[in-house]
Design a protein around this nucleic acid. Structure first.
Lengths: 203, 203, 203, 203
DNA sequence: TATGAATGAGTATTCATTCAT
DNA sequence: AATGAATGAATACTCATTCAT
């Protein structure tokens, strides 16, 4: 039978729930957020929310998944316009240099994201999700570094794996510090970027 | 009325609750841990626990506070045996190079601490605790760097504040990555240490 | 406006809902069966079901009513081919001797019917339904016994009312026992039948 | 540690919950009864009820179990004072002849009992309970009949198993009929008793 | 002080029923 | 008439905290 509402309508409804949920989670945390909160925020009844998601956790799950997908697309799209490996890596730093990490909404999202990561740590099933995301992010850098080594842009002696990890360590490190009001985010990150790019450059 | 039980007895009881709580929190997370869990683990009755702590959150709170105090003491004690600024900073790195971050208990503790930090983010009162701890940790490095600059050990041109932040960024970064099973913790941290110390050294 | 679909179509649809409902109820019980279950089983949408029935309970209600009607018709039809009272009573026993009470579907149906009967016990309105059905069934036997007494087939001294009740007591009794896997249904019922018929026979 | 309340106190509390639950179940049925209902009826808070029982179903379960135990004890006690098999069987009938089956409370209990039996029909675990109870009741009659055959009181030709089933068939049959207001319970049961005892008597 | 029983507010989830398309 | 999305009342169960003993 033909669906009674358009696929588009359902998509919009679902993403409305997702964005409301994200905002609630960011404000109060996953546990403290009730399904009623999400309903009130999105103007969608509790019962309806359960038409779109199996459980509160499923919303959480999809939120992270969606974010991963979006990141993937964004990076792929932007990488395609960039030729050199160094410019790609530079772009990756810039992603984090061009957002406002102290904006309450952004900060909330960051916190939610880390909290969910920790939450996953305690569930076999969810751990997988986190691992996959982690590997995906790691590989982006790894592959870019390898490309650069092949093209001669990047020092052939560096340990690609180590440097990939180091990249995300920096990002996690600065992101985490944003919970402190007066953390000089941009200064620190900009310096770390320059140093990082300098080190890997072919001598 | 004279106290019926010795102060020492009470101290032991309290710290028994604390260590049990930490283990439970590490295993299941703060929210999922019930006061009964802590009771069962410590062998102390639920009612009794409330003689020592106002609330479950108070236990959490004291746990972080105690850890901060212990860190403070440890650092002070060890710093007193160290003369040069560089050796002090080296020691600070070594603190994290000599623990086993993948040990489940340790990993759990790490997660709990970050979780609590995030939790505090949402409460004016608790945020203060985190800020104080953050400042304390930051200042240790700052002061050491300043000492080094005065004594000529450390490059006078570096921005002390920036480098202090950078130190903790590194620590937070590597700690966070330990949730990934195959993160080359020691390799990465060792390299970061060498690089860090090299950079700040007076030229 | 002329009806868009034929009356026949609607009848078929309605009875499809009824038979699906019966099967669902038999399998999971009335409360545990959701309207969605009935929809899934019958291939008729939830919304449509409510075009045919006011409520889930109305389906239950009609199920019993329909069964009563069907029983009524069956008995009338079969009685019309039977001359003697004793053969009619014999036939009534045979109805229950020729079904397979341990067949899961049959057993489920039995349970559903008793459950609904009990359910009705608690509602003035529904109790009426049960009473009517009860009286109808009772009267069939009563009338047959009276006919037999008039015709001389059946002992004039027996209390017709008592023996009518006794008939249904036997049927309820053996039906109920079928929930026990190894109840010798046929043996017991056959013997009860013989004894019953022997007793009422005119001496 | 010594329990803080007496075992007796807890027993009384538990049985208070049980009897309240029975009354609520009898009045509204198992599903319609909320845990709050039981709480209100017993004056015990919902939370407390869960200190004594794992779930609403567990209360139901224990109710049936307790009834079985009580029956067992009663029968054993009374049988010990009776010498002949026939008097024992007579006593078994009298158990049901000396209660008031139309008393609302009693009727409610009967209905609850059958409802639960049906409910069990759909759960492997619970079916066991019902089977055990069924076998126990069956065996009482069987054993008594066998004793009687050995002592010469009871006809050696009767099929003990069949007659045991027939006993409970009668009891179930008359119990079920009590949902009809004008069922001549005593008359029917008394006659069935006499007939039953007459038939099995050694000729 | 220690205990653990009592409390009841708090919440995820289900599902009969309604209603817009 | 048919569909299935929307609704929200209803409810079992949990657990931090209190309190009588």
């Amino acid at each position: 039978m033909a669906p009674i509402v358009s696929k588009d309508y359902k998509e919009r409804r679902k993403s409305s729930i997702l964005s409301s949920a994200l905002e609630c989670f960011a404000q109060k945390g996953f546990v403290a957020t009730t399904v009623d909160d999400i309903g009130a925020h999105s103007g969608i009844s509790k019962g309806s929310i359960y038409n779109y998601f199996e459980s509160k956790e499923a919303i959480y799950f999809e939120l992270l998944n969606t974010a991963t997908e979006r990141d993937k697309e964004n990076i792929t799209k932007n990488f395609s316009t960039l030729r050199s490996s160094l410019s790609k890596l530079s772009y990756m730093f810039d992603v984090f240099l061009t957002l406002d990490p102290f904006n309450p909404k952004r900060l909330g999202t960051t916190v939610v994201f880390y909290e969910f990561t920790f939450h996953c740590t305690r569930s076999e099933k969810l751990l997988d999700l986190v691992t996959k995301r982690g590997n995906f992010l790691l590989n982006i850098i790894k592959e870019t570094l390898e490309e650069g080594q092949e093209s001669g842009e990047i020092d052939k002696n560096i340990d690609v794996n180590l440097y990939a990890h180091r990249f995300w360590l920096i990002i996690d490190g600065v992101s985490l510090q944003t919970i402190h009001k007066d953390f000089p985010y941009y200064d620190v990150l900009r310096e770390m970027k320059e140093m990082y790019l300098e080190e890997i450059k072919a001598k």
